[in-house]
Each structure stands twice: as C-alpha cells, then as structure tokens.
Amino acid sequence: MTDFPKGLMISAPSSGTGKTTVMLGLLRALTEDGLTVQPFKSGPDYIDPAFHFAAAGRASFNLDTWAMDGALLDAVTTQAQGADICIGEGSMGLFDGVATRGQSGFGSSAETALRMGWPVVLVIDVGGQAQSAAATALGFKMYNPDLPFAGVILNRVASPRHDRLTRLGMERAGVTVLGSLPRRGDLALPERHLGLIQAVEHPDLEAAIAGYAAFLRENVDLEAIRAVARTAAAPTPRALPNPPA
C-alpha cells in the first residue's frame, strides 16, 4: 500500500492521562490547517470514534488486532484513502491487551502501531512528579525496541518550574518532548466508558473541541507532530509479537 497516508499513534501509560483530549485537539488543529485527517481507534471502543468524527469531520474506524485477522485489518485501513495523515488513538496503556490471543494478536495499542507503521506519541500525566516522569517515558521507549517511539506530550504541568524540571529529566533520558500542556481542569471530557457520555450527549461538544485545538496550538509543536508522522513506515502485515515472559 505505497499510497497509504502516513500517521502516528497517540497513546499513554494508562487510561485517564488526557490522551483523548490531545487526540481531539490534534484532529481539529490539523483539519483547520487544511489537512484531510483520517482518525482510527485501537481496540473495540465505540464511544471515542464518534468524538473523532466530530473533531475531524471524517468517520473514524476501529483497528483491533485481537478480534480482527490480517485481511480485515487491511480492509479497514483502506478507509484512509484520500487522507493526508492518519492519527490513531490507543486504548488503556500502550502495551495493555488481553491475556490470550484472538484471531490475530493480544489487542494492544502497541500491536496496532507496529502493524500500521505508526510512531508512538505518549501522553504522560506528570502531576505529582517531575524528573521521575522520564523514568516512565524511558521504560515505554525501551520496552519494545521494534516499536518506533517519537516522544512525549507532558500533560497537567503545574508551573513553568515544573515544566523545566520535567524537561530536564526527559533530556537526560533521551526522550523528545513534543509539547507541554498546563494543568486546566476545564479541559477534561466527561467520563465516556461504558457509554455513560456519548458524543451526541455532550452539552457543547463543538466548543469543547475548538478549545482543545486552540490549547494544543499554544502548547504543542504541531509541525514536529507532522514531521513524526512523515517518518512512519507503510502498513505491513506481520506476525504479532508475544508479550515478554
């Protein structure tokens, strides 16, 4: 698939770190810049794709390496034809999956990123820590050397001093910082798991997404994000790896 648009995966060490806020802001900001952006969701989640559609104006599709075999995954990826860039959103933590193989793999976001050739951008909640956050980032960077690791977006940064200290740790660990988001309680989405809040039920979703996009423009290097996507490899069918023993 040589004409397949390149992309990246937005993931995190765990749920609740703010990756969906980053995802929606990024989708909208890149769309505002004139790009046709194809969203994807790693895993079986049916709530987030509706939010993706609201942000990008283009239907989002699930990529599930546990439930889908290679042929189905290939078929789903054809939905990106005509797009300029793909942005995938991970589920849970980057390496979290089920305990046993399904038709294909274990269903982790890392598996999806590997199969799609997408570098990973890790959203890290640095609340309550500074240089120690670099140890988390470094562990994720080194856990699977085959997985392209582009860098991190720091979330919930308390102050300029907090930002400087956290960046010092990342620099020491050799981890690229692509953005630093100040702590703002008004940017949190209502809880969405188990269908509690769906896109059509958000009280003012359009204003919220526009706010996320403006926030990312102020605090994330969008050109660096686009450059990360340009380093992506083409999607290639591959044997999915076993998790470490």
Rank of each mutant, 00 (worst) to 15 (best):
F53P: 13
Q79L: 12
A113R: 04
T231K: 12
V152D: 06
M23V: 12
L189A: 00
L240V: 05
D186K: 00
A80I: 09
E218W: 09
T231L: 07
A110M: 01
Q81V: 14
P5F: 13
A188G: 07
F4I: 14
L216F: 09
A29S: 13
A234P: 06
R172Y: 07
L24I: 01
A12M: 09
Q38I: 09
R167F: 05
L165E: 13
D33M: 10
Q198V: 10
S42H: 02
H193R: 01
K41L: 06
I209R: 10
D125C: 03
G93S: 06
E218F: 10
M142E: 14
A227D: 15
A233Q: 14
L63Y: 08
D48Q: 04
L196Q: 11
S60E: 07
F149Q: 06
E201P: 08
T20N: 02
L189R: 00
V37W: 01
D69F: 13
D33C: 08
T36W: 02
F215M: 07
L138D: 10
T136I: 14
T112L: 07
G107S: 03
E32G: 07
D48I: 03
G102H: 05
P160Q: 04
T65H: 09
A75N: 15
G128C: 05
H162Q: 05
P241Y: 02
A99V: 12
V22I: 14
D163L: 05
K6N: 12
S159D: 14
L35K: 09
L72T: 15
G57C: 05
H202I: 01
A29K: 09
T21G: 09
G7T: 08
P243M: 07
P237S: 15
A234Q: 14
M142G: 13
L205R: 00
A224H: 03
T236Y: 11
A50E: 14
G93F: 01
I209G: 08
G93E: 03
L122K: 05
A150M: 01
G127K: 10
Q79T: 15
P203W: 03
S109K: 00
S104F: 08
A245N: 15
Y212L: 12
S159C: 10
T2S: 15
L8G: 06
P44T: 11
V126L: 08
A71R: 06
A188M: 03
A239I: 14
T100G: 13
I124N: 01
T65P: 10
A208Y: 00
L26I: 12
D84F: 04
P148V: 00
G195R: 01
D33N: 13
D74K: 07
G117E: 02
R217W: 13
D186C: 00
A245I: 05
T236W: 11
I124H: 00
G43Q: 02
L178A: 07
R226N: 08
H162R: 04
T136M: 07
M1I: 12
A229K: 01
A29I: 05
I153R: 00
A214M: 12
S109M: 01
M9T: 04
V76F: 12
L26Q: 05
G107C: 02
G127A: 14
L73G: 15
L187M: 04
T231C: 08
A188T: 02
G151C: 03
T112I: 06
D221G: 08
K41W: 03
A158K: 02
D3E: 15
A213M: 09
G25M: 04
